[in-house]
Amino acid sequence: MSYCVNCGVKLSKSEHKCPLCGTIVVNPNIDINNIEEAYPDRIEIHNPKINWKYLFNLFNMFLIVFGLTTVLCDLFIIGKITWSLYVLASTAYVGIVLFFMFLKNKYISLIIWLLSTELFIFLIAYLNNGMSWFLYLVMPFLFIFGIFCLIILWIIKRKNKNLIRILSFVLFFCALSIIVIEILIDLYNFKTIDLYWSIFVTLPILLISIVFIVISCNKKMLEEIKQRIFI
C-alpha cells in the first residue's frame, strides 16, 4: 500500500500517481507491471459510419435506370430519340459530377466539374441553335467563374493565411472579371468594345484592394488594426 505524500490519502494498488494532486507514487516494494489496472485502457468512441460508397452506387444505379427508361419511352412513343436526349445528358452530367466530387484532389474535381458543365451546356446550345450565345457569353463566363473557384480553393488550402492580403487579391480578381464580362457582353451585342459601367464598379473595388495590399505589407499597421477589431 502506498500513500500520497502530498494529500495523505491511501492509494489503491492500481494508481501510479495520485489522482488528486498528480504526485508520482514511488514504492519500491510494488512491481507496477504486475498489477491490473482499475479500468482497461480501451476508450470507446462512437463514430457513426455512413457508407458513402454504397449510397453513391445506389444513386448511380438509379440514374442509369432512370436514363434508360426515358430513352425507351421516347423510342416507343415517338419512334426516335428526341426529348430523352436532354434527360440522358442531364443524368450523365449529374453522375459524372458526383463521381469526381469525392476525389482526394479537389482541384481535379473542380476542373472536371467545369469541363462537364461546359460540355453539358454546349450540348443544349447545339441542339437549340444557340452556338453564338454559348461561344461568346456562357463559355467565357463559366471559365471566369471556374478560375475564380480554383483561386478560392487554393486560398483555402494554403496554410499561412494573411486574411487582408487574400481579401485584396479576391477584390482585384473581381474587378478584373467585371471588366472582362463587359467586354464580352459588348462584343456579343455591338461587336465593339466600349467600356462604360464596369469602370464605375471596378475603380472603387481596385482602390480598396490597393489599400488592403498596402495595409497587409505594413506589419505595424496590421497589428494596430488587429488589436482594435479583435473579437
Binding site: C7, G8, L11, S12, H16, C18, A38
Partner: peptide, 20 residues
C-alpha cells in the same frame, strides 16, 4: 473533499480511471 476527510482522521483509499 478527500483531504478534508483525511484531516479529520478519516482514512480514505483512492482509485481512479486516469491510469498510469
Amino acid at each position: 473533499f478527500f483531504t478534508k476527510l483525511v484531516e479529520m482522521n478519516i482514512p480514505v483509499e483512492i482509485e481512479s480511471n486516469q491510469g498510469r
